[in-house]
Design a protein around this nucleic acid. Sequence first.
RNA 1: GGUGCUGUACCCAAGUGGUUUAAGGGGAAGGUCUGCAAAACCUUUAUUCGGUGGUUCGAAUCCACUCAGCACCUCCA
Length: 499
Amino acid sequence: MTSKEKYPITLYNTLSGKKEVFNPIHPDHVGMYVCGPTVYSDVHLGNIRTFMCFDVIYRYLMYIGYKVRYVRNITDVGHLENDADEGEDKIAKKARLQQLEPMEIVQQYTNGFHHVLDQFNLMPVSIEPSATGHIMEQIEMVQNLINNGYAYEINGSVYFDVSKYDKAHNYGKLSGRKIEELMESGRSLDSQDEKRNKIDFAVWKKASPTHIMRWNSPWGEGFPGWHLECTVMSTKYLGESFDIHGGGMDLVFPHHECEIAQSIGSTGKDPVKYWLHSNMLTVNGQKMSKSLGNSFLPHQLFSGDHELLDKGYSPMVVRFFMLQSHYSSTLDFSNEALQAAEKGYKRLMEGFKISNNLKHNSGQTDSDLENKTKELIDDLFKNMSDDFNTAKTLAVLFEITTMMNNFKAGNLKVSQLSKETFDELIVQYQGFITDVLGINEEKESSNDLLNGVIDVLINLRQNAKEAKNYQLSDKIRDDLKDLGVILKDSKEGTEYSLS
RNA sequence: GGUGCUGUACCCAAGUGGUUUAAGGGGAAGGUCUGCAAAACCUUUAUUCGGUGGUUCGAAUCCACUCAGCACCUCCA
């Protein structure tokens, strides 16, 4: 019995509004698509939260034995400044302002995106397709929609006919919106508007004479609509129906709603079995967003160069911080919360180090401890399988951390556990920290020279202590502390850590 | 205005009908260890879950109303 059978996953499906048991379309294989960034500027921490949530989901699915194909796109064309299919293309605008080729902008911010994901220890995805690399496929889908009667061409642009689609299918089923309400509440059609109804959305847009990013199509030169790429690329790489589609909560409407309509409109099939949405990162209770000017860029966070931060925090501390909450809850970003997370992260990493050095030896096993340990291991899986509850999982990891500390301090003996249970405890404790949650030990800037120098000082201090020259021994300790080197005495000797 | 979400200790944050008179992290207090510290360990820190009613043998968890906040859409600008 494999882990995935022993611990079946339940997850909250936005489509049904309920927690459901996860049953992939093809047993053992999972297809997962997540909406990636529009690469016209730096990703901020709110964006990163979303990708981190799905990184952990990806990791856990693999950890319990699924083969996962994870597709995350790069949007490099078609995302206009507002979502009413008006305004300038975000990337073209940036290119114009910086006097660069659009593809230079795309490359620059794609590189930056990858670099940041790497700093936060996100795993590379299986396929990372870009919209401009799939223009042909997008044109085909537009044609398909026209053939099926769900899209119409006018003046070189093609729009999705939402009201016609809604007659046969249910537009709004993901976001709980009703087409009548959308029609009523909208702004009146202005004379420039080519759409039959204002809720119609562009699947292909005619390029104005000054528009740089343009491709030939049966309808003249133009570019694809924003929603189209995700439908096209998810279909191409994961099939007409696949298991998981994820993204930030703010994409539910209209983006994901439109994706469903496009898929059903062109293939006749419901594209996604489970829709997962991660919630927003907030600052002082408000959504972190570029337009509100309250977003943090990763480098500001690392350096502490931001008015809301007292100091810098490392990527792993932030990763730990984010995993302390559930992905479907809003998470408020504050200095105090980060400071607490930093200490918690260090405590966890100390436990991890201890677990590396423990060796089992046999003796009198303690059945209470044995059972308790088995229960903790079980809980790790149960909590992650319960809608990927990283907060609960961390709570269990901290209980195990306390055990580790007790082993080290001699309050508990490893011999009180059977060899099998002990081995399993270490494997899963470490596995959940590094493989599932993706939390690593921060590479301390230590080197052999530094280690050697501090060892010399530790020895000198030890000599002073033995001579009861506490004035000197305390001075060594205090001076090192001022430099950020913290000495910790224990029965086995003195260790140090960098603050 | 429509739709949805949230409100849990000093702070962050799990928990959605009984094993929870509520995890875990941080903070605070006391103790153990220590030459003294630090770290670690142990104990304490919400009889209570925004408020008011109701359903139930039993509710933080379900229902109604209400207050507060947020998000998406819309409107306005």
